[in-house]
Design a protein around this nucleic acid. Sequence first.
DNA 1: TTTCTTAAGAGAGCACCGCTCTCGTTTACA
DNA 2: TGTAAACGAGAGCGGTGCTCTCTTAAGAAA
Lengths: 233, 233
Amino acid sequence: MADTTTPRERARAQTLQDITRIGRSHLATEGAAALSVRAVARELGVVSSAIYRYVRSRDDLLTLLVVDGYDELGDEVDAAVAKVAVDDHRGRFVAIGRAVRRWALREPATYALLFGSPVPGYQAPGERTTGPGTRVIGALVRVWEDAYAAGAVRLPDDTPPVPRKLAADVKRIRREFPSSAPEDLTVRGVLAWAALFGCVSFEVLGQYGPDTFTAVDQLFERQLQLLADTTGL
Amino acid sequence: MADTTTPRERARAQTLQDITRIGRSHLATEGAAALSVRAVARELGVVSSAIYRYVRSRDDLLTLLVVDGYDELGDEVDAAVAKVAVDDHRGRFVAIGRAVRRWALREPATYALLFGSPVPGYQAPGERTTGPGTRVIGALVRVWEDAYAAGAVRLPDDTPPVPRKLAADVKRIRREFPSSAPEDLTVRGVLAWAALFGCVSFEVLGQYGPDTFTAVDQLFERQLQLLADTTGL
DNA sequence: TTTCTTAAGAGAGCACCGCTCTCGTTTACA
DNA sequence: TGTAAACGAGAGCGGTGCTCTCTTAAGAAA
């Protein structure tokens, strides 16, 4: 099937892609704060004002990189999950965690852009970022749902019931992430999700300090196991 | 006892304090990225170059705010812990968690500065920040240590032993945070620590999305309880 | 094939930034 | 009281995001 795009549209798409690529390389080498429209323009061999034909503002350029980053992370997580047997629920959870960490360590600047402090003054436009931004939690929910459906989730039975308002939140969330699991499991999943990124953030953003852990791999594996326990996998 | 400081030293300390105060207010209203030496100078009623008599660089100004923030957070955490009975170990843990969250919600910009992405190009000088930066984990370790010493920690006995290299890390960490608890508890503590900040970061830095949770309080309480469980409190 | 619309890039310019340097002035100490 | 140090002002440099105007060239329409 012949593409119906005009040459102009194709050139435009190519330039936009070049801008994203250059932006990502600058992000990786200099960090988000040092990302400048003028530098990207220079490397593209164009004057700075020309960039504004493609990107509304510097924040818009950041959004481009945010979406790009979420997509790459989502792809890697999906690929990692696909390599594990569907009935190995714990294995799938661990695979997701490892994939997130591996990607974060490889792309710390992009990770910081996505999961670190919001860039000052910059507000990611929800309509462009929420879709790609929910892929990791989406993958996690699928694991827990499959595990529960297979009767493979073991949770303590002395946990108090989920309070009313929170239960209402859970119900609403299930419109986007359908699930038949008990509310308690969903809440535990939210904890595991936040905790997973907490662990990765501490390592990638340097909260542990430079010389605290030499065996971060072993630490992270242990943390993953504990989180798998918490969610009953 | 009369103070031995000269008027000049006192004036200098006062000016430094003013700079910190103005810096914090700008941080709160504009965010870390928008924090500018020139703006601080304007508000101080002084020309921008004068600031450099007190602060080596913009990064140095950020370090001032980082230390200030760590101290304030540490103070509030300590105060919160002190209000709980020493033998209520779980209550002390929960108090720490709540204090961290309360402070983070009140000072989101400072929280982002401390626990979000590192400001691009800026590297916090360890010799000035690690001390104040370890107060929260210090308080947590004290809770677990007290609980263990009181025989109030209940951990599952089927947990595999901590791997060798990680055990060596734990041993080294205990030179700074003395403890007689089993290695497994320490590792669980590290998870709880990272997870606590993961939960707070998700909420404060906006990872949950704007409309996902209406009952974030209840969610956080539940997360704290689960983390207390994980550490055997 | 010729005309016309429009997208793209160049360049100047504005206001701001961090930071440096120099130059008077004030202050504290010997 | 003399002097060295601290301090603030001011100019200036190279950088930033962003806007505006102008010219050119490419695609679409006739």
